[in-house]
């Protein structure tokens, strides 16, 4: 039966090429889907970034010690670090303050304060800060003997 054998051979070759094209089609379809979905998500995300992205940390005052810091305002947009070390943005030269005490940074349209494992802790509105938390305009931050207010 040469005809059946021939037919089977043709079928086999068709299936082999079919597999390749099937694979190609799959990759094409999935990649189109993924890129369209990504484009849509990007369009969704754009609007909320337009508001002002500047925040201010104002030092309110402290009970004693040197007066250099009082009433100073620190403006920042992405991130600001607080601590005793000279490489911080806000340097508080006090032994109660750790070298790298806390950091404030932006996430999306909000700001987050994070305690960097300091020995004497950070207090937000006189409450102990554990780990990190979102911070609202008007919140007060106490580090060592210094109190600061966060504003936008």
């Amino acid at each position: 039966m040469p005809d059946t054998a021939m037919l089977l051979k043709v079928l086999r070759v068709l299936l082999e090429y079919g597999m390749l094209f099937w694979l190609l089609m799959f990759v094409g379809k999935i990649s189109r889907w993924i890129f369209l979905d990504m484009k849509e998500k990007l369009q969704e995300q754009k609007p909320p970034e337009l508001q002002s992205d500047e925040a201010v940390l104002e030092v309110l005052g402290r009970d004693k010690g040197e007066e250099g810091l009082v009433k100073r305002r620190f403006a920042f947009s992405e991130q600001i670090t607080v601590g005793r070390g000279e490489d911080n943005d806000v340097v508080i030269p006090e032994s109660f303050v750790s070298h790298h005490h806390a950091v404030l940074f932006r996430r999306g349209s909000q700001y987050v304060i994070e305690d960097l494992g300091s020995r004497n802790h950070t207090y937000v509105n006189d409450q102990l800060l554990t780990g990190k938390a979102y911070i609202k305009p008007g919140d007060t931050i106490r580090i060592g003997l210094v109190t600061m207010r966060f504003e936008r």
Binding site: L8, L11, R12, L15, M19
Partner: peptide
């Protein structure tokens, strides 16, 4: 899609074995 590849592949193997 994955099912198609699986069936086509097994089909080819069967035809070859036949």
């Amino acid at each position: 899609m994955p099912l198609g590849i699986l069936l086509a592949g097994l089909g080819v193997l069967c035809l070859k074995g036949y």
